[in-house]
Amino acid sequence: GGVGMPTGSYVAPKTVWLPAMKAKGLEISGTFARRGGIIQMDLTLTNKAMSVMTDFAIQFNRNSFGLAPAGPLQVLTPLSPNQTIDVSLPLSTSGPVMKMEPLNNLQVAVKNNIDVFYFSCQYPLSLIFVEDGKMERQVFLATWKDIPNDSEAQFQIKDIHLNSDAASNKLQGSNIFTIAKRTVEGQDMLYQSVKLTNGIWVLAEMRIQTGNPNYTVNENQETWRMAPFI
């Protein structure tokens, strides 16, 4: 968001997950959002077939973080040819867990009166960053010290035209919390924590050089090598 906009996590534009030609005329596009701790799958269903579609239902395969529909897919009226509807499906993280490849992959089955259709989509890992992910500063220091060196991964994020405070505020909107900030030799060092819905903590150090749009991020976590997704 720009100046004066409320902060919140980034929501990607919807993309086509199921093209009509692969689903007997049903087109599904969607995206994911986390709003105030509620996870939602925002879907657009379009009927590109010649006949009416009814009896919609949705199911997920088991996945890395136990994402599951928290209720039925609410398509309350039949979908006529050329009609489009938007549906928000609330999700829980209490479904069955199985590590997926890639980690953030979600396999979905949608049925209607015509057939059952399958597609895969990928969610941003920030979907499962919880609101109480700000680690106590002493705990952060102790944890950082205890994490083995080979659990650390380094990334460059290029072309970020924000100063460290603006970046920090923006990241907080996605539940990435800055615990401490220090400036050493012209570099801002931000120490950050993230907590996932399954209780895993991720610790990060972000380095920002004034005037350099490329950030360096060091991430520490002990399980699942999830740094690239984060």
Partner: peptide, 20 residues
């Protein structure tokens, strides 16, 4: 007093990461 210690510990951490 404890807070001072934590503040200092973060300064030392940032320092050590910049000049290992």
């Amino acid at each position: 007093e404890l807070e001072d210690g934590v503040d200092e510990a973060f300064s030392r951490l940032a320092e050590s990461r910049t000049n290992p």
